[in-house]
């Protein structure tokens, strides 16, 4: 349609084309300044040589990528072996972000469903309540969580006082603490898209399924879930992607053992000890990984749609 109109070449379509170019300018500017430029900068920096007090020397180098994947010994003169440290950190990040996403989905879906099934006039209030904790700075919320969950903290005190446990459960500095922190950081990003999808859902479909002898569980799985799938996917992406690169929760709740890729990148740009090209390279690798995961998903989705008809 648009191509047909543009190739017309008449005065009207030319004016249309011209004004369209101008009208699209803000979008192009935003995209290039806020997306294209930073990513390009990062890509360029990842191929430069590091300066010891932070910053870069403008000299092409593959050292950053080499350091990420290969171990050449302390002085860099040994035969290259695969460097597992960073790959493990990477793997842990995927794993932690995945667990946090699943946790968010398990808690977020029923929450979103609950809000979407309230009377219409009370729904905005519920959405508002969900977002209220997020008006507080993320750092403060994460520190508070650390305080709540520590061995002598209120959570363990409560469990001991009601007699459920004798000795405190160690939560801080475990993987689970990090997952909990990530879950709490990004929960609204799971709830809101699912809420939007469930609110648009035609509940007569659930009635129709029940009428045709489907139990509640089957109705959920075979009718509701396929209908709200786009919202669920959006929610999962919105939680998984920032969780992957997050550094606050892993730093504060996970301790040194539970280092994630976000912390690794953060270290490279902090103070004088950093390595900018290496940080940039790790960022590029993180971004590439996330894109690959999304692409695999998109392709599978397209294939599934084709099979379905």
């Amino acid at each position: 349609m648009a191509a047909g109109a543009a190739s017309g070449g008449s005065a009207v379509t030319d004016t249309y084309k011209e004004s369209r170019t101008w009208l699209l300018m803000p979008a192009w500017l935003t995209l290039s300044i806020l997306v294209l430029a930073p990513v390009t900068m990062m890509l360029v920096y990842s191929f430069l040589t590091k300066e010891f007090r932070g910053g870069v020397i403008w000299e092409f180098s593959l050292a950053a990528y080499d350091q990420f994947f290969f171990d050449r010994g302390l002085f860099g003169d040994e035969a290259p072996k695969v460097e597992w440290t960073y790959i493990l950190i990477f793997w842990r990040s995927i794993w932690q972000a995945g667990a946090a996403t699943i946790l968010s989905l398990v808690i977020g879906f029923p929450t979103a469903y609950f809000i979407a099934t309230r009377p219409e006039q009370s729904r905005p209030l519920w959405v508002f309540l969900i977002t209220i904790p997020y008006w507080v700075n993320l750092l403060i919320r994460t520190v508070s969580m650390k305080f709540l969950l520590r061995d002598q903290g209120p959570f363990n005190d409560l469990l001991i006082n009601i007699g459920l446990i004798d000795t405190p459960i160690h939560i801080i500095n475990t993987n689970f603490a990090v997952q909990l922190g990530l879950f709490y950081s990004y929960l609204p990003f799971m709830v809101l898209p699912i809420y939007a999808a469930v609110e648009r859902y035609n509940f007569t479909l659930s009635e129709a399924a029940a009428d045709l002898y489907a139990s509640k569980w089957v109705t959920l799985r075979r009718i509701l879930l396929p209908a709200v799938k786009p919202g669920v996917i959006a929610g999962c992406i919105l939680v998984f992607v920032p969780s992957m690169g997050s550094f606050l929760a892993p730093d504060l709740l996970g301790g040194a053992k539970n280092f994630m890729i976000g912390s690794l990148i953060e270290e490279q740009f902090k103070g004088n000890a950093g390595n900018w090209p290496f940080g940039a390279a790790a960022s590029m690798i993180l971004m590439t990984m996330v894109l690959i995961i999304l692409l695999i998903y998109a392709r599978q989705q397209a294939r599934a749609d084709k099979v379905e008809g």
Binding site: N202, T204, L205, E207, A208, A209, A210, D211, L212, Y213, A214, S215, I223, P226, A227, E308, G309
Partner: peptide
């Protein structure tokens, strides 16, 4: 009895066909 245990079926006003199924 819940609806899925009643041997009656309904034709809905706006049909309520499952959109993702053939």
């Amino acid at each position: 009895l819940p609806p899925h245990q009643r041997p009656v079926n309904t034709v809905f006003q706006n049909y309520a066909l499952f959109p993702h199924m053939t």
